[in-house]
């Protein structure tokens, strides 16, 4: 059994000490700090990134809230403007209508007055003509010319 060959023991222990010692130095001084550092660096980087993401999310939420409030504000303002404009237009319309109505009624009154005046004038002329005719008719029938006062009275009585 080669494992029990004591003459090889010293050499094996000697080289084991050298190689194991060398590997220990490599592991302890170089490898583990590098690997552990990389892991630690990644961990902190991920934590930082998560923090940043959280911050961005909060910012975005705030922006959304701002946007919504400004939207609501604009909407309210627009509504107010529309309302005001509507009232203004209604008032103008009302005024125009009143003015037109007043003008129209004035014109109607004027026209009525003119009609009345023409009617009176026509009646007066008609009264003269009727008086003349009546005088002639009476003269022809009775042979007696009626007095102008009686004629006038009779015509006025008929015409009212």
């Amino acid at each position: 059994m080669p494992q029990l060959d004591f003459s090889t023991y010293l050499s094996q222990i000697f080289w084991l000490a050298i190689t194991f010692g060398a590997l220990y130095l490599i592991v302890a001084r170089m490898a583990l700090p590098a690997i552990g550092g990389a892991i630690e660096h990644r961990r902190s980087r991920i934590a930082d990134d998560l923090d940043a993401a959280e911050r961005f999310k909060r910012d975005a939420e705030k922006a959304l809230a701002d946007y919504e409030s400004s939207l609501a504000e604009s909407r309210a303002r627009a509504q107010k403007l529309v309302q005001e404009q509507k009232e203004k237009v209604t008032a103008e319309l009302e005024a125009a209508r009143a003015r037109t109505e007043a003008e129209l009624s004035a014109k109607i009154a004027e026209a009525e007055a003119r009609v009345r005046a023409s009617k009176e004038e026509a009646l007066k002329e008609l009264g003269g003509a009727i008086g003349g005719l009546t005088g002639e008719i009476v003269t022809r029938l009775t042979g007696e010319e009626p007095s102008p006062e009686r004629l006038k009275k009779a015509v006025e009585k008929v015409l009212g």
Binding site: S11, Q12, F14, I26
Partner: peptide, 20 residues
């Protein structure tokens, strides 16, 4: 003292080299 570099030593060195 016999501190010869043997096949065992060679493989120890290979182990360290590969591990490194």
């Amino acid at each position: 003292l016999d501190l010869s570099f043997t096949n065992s030593s060679l493989w120890m060195v290979i182990i360290v080299a590969l591990a490194a």
